[in-house]
Amino acid sequence: MTPVYFSFTSAFTLGLTGLAFHRTHLLSALLCLEGMMLSLFIALALWMLQLESTAFSAAPILLLAFSACEAGAGLALLVATARTHGTDRLQSLNLLQC
């Protein structure tokens, strides 16, 4: 396992564990998701660069477009949560009322 592979793999794993465990804010969860998408982007781009496969070069860009969609939908949910609950703490989302 080269240092490059190890780096983005451990970055992805760190983002995943951060998302899975201890989250207090919804924004922190979204930031962990963004970190995972960042490591995936770097992984796809490095795949293209190391294998010198030119045809693969579009994949990180398409991933970035989908990642922008994910970030936009997540932040819209954050705004909606801040409107209904007044805060974005995930503990307050357990309440079954707005």
Partner: peptide, 15 residues
Amino acid sequence: SLVVGLVGVASNPAP
């Protein structure tokens, strides 16, 4: 720095 930055994201500080 990439790994350390992700540690900084994942360790649940303020947003």
